[in-house]
Nucleic acid binder design. Sequence first.
DNA 1: CCCGGTTTGTCAACCGGTTGCCAAAATTGG
DNA 2: CCAATTTTGGCAACCGGTTGACAAACCGGG
Lengths: 362, 362
Amino acid sequence: MTEAQHVQDAQNPEATESAPPVAPRGGRRGRPAATIYDIAKLAGVNPSTVSRALSKPGRINVKTEERIHAAAKELNYRLNPMARALPTGRTSSLGLLLADITNPMFFNVVRGAESAASMRGYTLLLAESQESSEREAAAAERLSPSVDGLVLVTSRLSDEQIVDLAAQRPLVVINRKVHGVPGIVPDIEPGIEQALAHLGGLGHTSIAFVSGPENSWMNRARWAALLDRAPALGMTIVEIGPGKPTLEGGATTLARVVAAGVTAVLAYNDLMAIGLMRAAQESGLDVPGELSIIGFDDIFGSDFTSPQLSTVRTPLGAIGDQAVRLIMRLIDEEAGGPPPLESDQPLVTEFVVRGSTGPAAR
Amino acid sequence: MTEAQHVQDAQNPEATESAPPVAPRGGRRGRPAATIYDIAKLAGVNPSTVSRALSKPGRINVKTEERIHAAAKELNYRLNPMARALPTGRTSSLGLLLADITNPMFFNVVRGAESAASMRGYTLLLAESQESSEREAAAAERLSPSVDGLVLVTSRLSDEQIVDLAAQRPLVVINRKVHGVPGIVPDIEPGIEQALAHLGGLGHTSIAFVSGPENSWMNRARWAALLDRAPALGMTIVEIGPGKPTLEGGATTLARVVAAGVTAVLAYNDLMAIGLMRAAQESGLDVPGELSIIGFDDIFGSDFTSPQLSTVRTPLGAIGDQAVRLIMRLIDEEAGGPPPLESDQPLVTEFVVRGSTGPAAR
DNA sequence: CCCGGTTTGTCAACCGGTTGCCAAAATTGG
DNA sequence: CCAATTTTGGCAACCGGTTGACAAACCGGG
């Protein structure tokens, strides 16, 4: 019998000598990673003492503790996170759920989150919903049992679904407000106010909002703020959309933008703004000569275009960072720690003037 | 006593009735998530039978299996991945280690990897090394015990470190070749050949390579290929660098590029190319009139610039996808499954002509 | 109706940590 | 020098699954 056909002959009755262990001891790799039992044997103490020495500094006699640490170092010991998670329920990892990884808006959010998490010894589990609420729900289900908390970035889930999820474990939503669920939302007012003032100063009186996904909370929030402020500043405003929050989504609105006869548009996000700008230029329209365009977020690449895109900047990195810090506070609080007290600095948006806005064509 | 001050009175001595379990049963949330024991009770069978019914279809009587599935559904059961991972050693998750999350080159790699992973029921753990080999090593250590395999994307580790890591568990490197370690590397030759032919056709005879990080394998590979091919096509070529693989890294080489008197440059990646192009334009140099610029990768935004960037496209999404598929083959193989047989389609690069290249200034 | 062979489900051990409880050892004080 | 108190470390149970071994139940055939 060759060594290769290792399975198949299971019910062999004379396999009585020293039954092999359940798993092939670390998957036929080098030796099987030290455990606290190995350390205990080497240091001549009980495994529970090792556990305490390693995770409850001070609980154990200094001399013993030193001996154990030395043994651990010698064996190159690494704690098995899964073994710890089982009895304690704490996994030291966070789930991050994104609508679309390739949308540059997420880059900085992810980076901010990753750095805040790894600084505190937490690991990030990543999942993408590709703008689909079913996939997002499935991903949340999948991640949920393995994490201490969940961060939803521009979720496409319904409020009820989010509330249900939040009932199971600590959860923070980004760019959305859901009643009773902690969320991180930048203050969009200042940026919008500045953007509208800028347009007003350039003589624009008739503008449009190219809107994004219908089920995006942030999309509605931006539109609501514009609807509230634009008339107050003496401008008329119309909504064009909804559309996909992508380059194509922006490009396909061109005909309607032109038809609406507006002199300036704000798009739901930079991607749509850039898509629209390129479509406009391809059809011979001058930006900003004949049409001023403003985006949202100030994503990577928004200053690559020609003209560079004027946009309402969102502090994306800070958002990711604060979301993670907030969820860790929730986790600590739930574990019986002190209630949160430190409050984070506010997240404000700001209008960035670049080249895609100019005097209104009359 | 208000409901809010929930802790603080721990050492209460008369807490003798029914000692609470170790963990507060799911962290004072709604009920504690069903286990196979709950299902067993409900279905009137042994827990081990439940385990088999759920993970070894066919091992159990159809009727019993149905009953168990019904009970599982009723209790809204989710398997606890950690509890499974402990005895089996299989975690169903993969670690992805990136040099820099904000570099757009990773977006598509991550997306390809995430989609391949989630399709197979795997979860991605993400870590960033921020271009530092120490941080990368630390992150690998941290992730390693929790994953079935590791994917290193443009690693900044030394070959030895990578070999050591690969000895511990399945590992795949992207954009790098390390002896004895499986890797996914696109074939850079075709794209480079096409790019050089393109430049040659435009009359360029003196070109430069703006190089990236010294410890980047791919940087050396690109330079080596250029060094090999350019003279064969009758061009002289010089290396300028090394530099950081960022916009600034590219911009700061401008003086040296100009001083070198070349008419065209290839940059290590699109980011550097774009940085260089912008610096050139700011200093009044015409691109491509006075200097032709070519990047590598074709990242998001490389066609936003004006002129749009000519670049050697790398199939980033396919790379992420294949890396994950490869590592899953390694995992299966190690678990005693069949050896890999299907071979993936080749990953070739291709030159994309856009606007940043033109006839040589003479 | 009995026998050998196959299905089916139970038992119990195990993965690698954590922690409540307790007893032995060390320390303090009178 | 002994009682009271505090430190220290061991025992054993537990987290939620998986799996080898085994026995009971079931099957068809002679």
